[in-house]
Amino acid sequence: MDFFLQLLVNGVCVGLLYGISAMGFVMIFKSSSVLNFAHGELLALGAFFFLALITWAKLPVLIAFILTLVGCFILGFLIERFFLRPLIGEKLIFVIMLTVGLAAMFKGLILLIWGGNLHTYPDFLPEAMALKLGSIYIAPVYSATLVISVLFLVLFGLFFKKSSQGIYMRSVADNQKAALSLGVHVRRVFALSWAIAALVASMSGIVLGIINGVNVHDLSSIGLKVFPVVILGGLDSIGGAIIGGIIIGLLETFTGGYISPSLRDVVPYIVLVFILLVKPYGLFGLVEIERV
């Protein structure tokens, strides 16, 4: 029973991580319907910026964190401006392959600068944040993750419901042409959504880096694990991303714990195929109606 509970808690923790990693991905998809294959590399870039600021520049944690977020915000903006904007209205395959190309570029760049080894952040989270529920131990990072993901969920919820930019974003996602004709600055919305997505990605990258150490290969493979998560939750639902993340996290840890550890990494994709066959738009996704 203890084993089960520990797996349950681990699964939820890992799942929350997947969830917040997926949030940035969903942001981009929601406003510009771009499937971002470079998401894992965005996570890695954030994590490595933070690493550079904290170990090489020796800045205090808080300042380094804020600088990383600002840096990634600008980076996201630039990516949209230089690479994605020329492709507005182009075929899906070009957009997908562009993000794949960007992923290869970023990965090469990170490997060139930092190498493929595992780096770690110095410890800075207080041990007091650790939770103990009976025999189950929750490490401080995981409780920090919980706090961050709930915080961001609420922030995003408010942003999309209340702020004018958020409403513009939803309108663009819903119908680009209609939004354009009603005077929404669609290009600005795209740029902003990429910038925010890169910001969120860098934040999740830092959290992942605290837990697993910073390694390009691990972080970019998380970028691929985002796909089952968002498909499960529906590609355009931010709350769904968190729930999808938790389901995938639970699935992984239980498969790893009870069936076989090697099956762990492939189970999300098997589930993904079945979900796509049964409910193609995910659990919380919007069903698209097509006309010829």
């Binding site: 190309g101 990965k107 090469g108 490997l111």
Partner: peptide, 24 residues
Amino acid sequence: GLNMAPLREFVFGLSIVLFILLEP
């Protein structure tokens, strides 16, 4: 101490991106 091997990946990505942007 610079490892140049990742340059390969970078140029590979760059060539995909440039082709898509310049000659789709």
